[in-house]
């Protein structure tokens, strides 16, 4: 891997930086309904990009295509030299496990497992010993200010606490890209603010890039720049200051 890993906090990257993830001419339909039309997005290492747009505009589909969860009908998505549109399911699965982190609005934690086990799960799936995985998980729970929830199950946590545990789980494998789909959508203003701040601070510290889909401008204001999706088409409005 030769990609520059230096983060670009607070602005657009320099023109000499090598993109980490590039989508170009991406289209995807579900049945007769087009969700994305010729969409493009470039993500640089360590950069935080907000994807905004009205409901049903295609922003979540774009996120799923970028993360290799949904294959586009047309176009190319390249992650660090790998073409995600032609990669095998096994390759995509490995990428999602080791290189990407995921954060959703809710429902991402396994209800039967404790918060500690939930955060340790991605490491366990990648072959780490239980002891090592849980030690790393405990560190991340502390880092997100929810170390005291380790033994509790997600059902015993508030919405805000659960999302902080989910942020820990998204970052525990030290991914190079975190994909977040409306991570604050189910939270009140104060908790939403805490979660997006913790996510962006922790991502900047670890050098991870973040693609965050949100309809909230106050959440997007934590990103370096924004891309707007309207009727399936992307419009890069750039980052200004």
């Amino acid at each position: 891997m030769t990609t520059d890993l230096s983060p670009h906090p607070g602005g657009t990257p320099s023109s000499s930086a090598v993109p980490l993830l590039t989508a170009s001419g991406v289209s995807r339909s579900f049945g007769p309904t087009p969700a994305l039309l010729d969409a493009s997005l470039t993500l640089y290492p360590g950069e935080i990009v907000a994807v905004m747009g009205p409901s049903g505009s295609g922003k979540s589909t774009l996120l799923h295509c970028l993360a290799g969860v949904v294959r586009p009908d047309e176009g190319r998505i390249e992650y660090d030299g790998t073409d995600l549109t032609t990669a095998s399911d096994t390759e995509l699965s490995a990428l999602r496990r080791t290189e990407f982190g995921f954060l959703f609005q809710f429902g991402q934690l396994v209800p039967e497992l404790s918060c500690l086990e939930n955060v340790a799960l991605p490491l366990r799936l990648d072959g780490e010993s239980r002891r090592r995985a849980e030690r790393t998980a405990a560190h991340w729970l502390d880092r997100l200010g929810v170390g005291d929830l380790a033994a509790k199950t997600p059902g015993e946590c508030s919405g805000g606490e659960g999302q902080r545990v989910a942020v820990a789980r998204a970052l525990v494998t030290r991914p190079r890209v975190v994909f977040a789909d409306e991570p604050t959508g189910a939270l009140d203003s104060l908790n939403g603010e805490r979660v997006i701040r913790l996510l962006t601070d922790a991502a900047r510290e670890s050098g991870a890039a973040v693609v965050v889909v949100t309809h909230e401008a106050r959440v997007a204001a934590y990103a370096d720049r924004e891309v707007v999706v309207r009727d399936g088409r992307t419009r890069d409005l750039g980052g200004v200051g």
Binding site: R197, R218, A221, L237, G238, G241
Partner: peptide, 20 residues
């Protein structure tokens, strides 16, 4: 609308930084 949107978000980033 897009040009104005960029300007508004730029200002929001300033306030977000000040806030932090």
């Amino acid at each position: 609308l897009d040009v104005q949107r960029v300007e508004h978000l730029r200002r929001m980033r300033e306030f977000t930084r000040r806030k932090s």
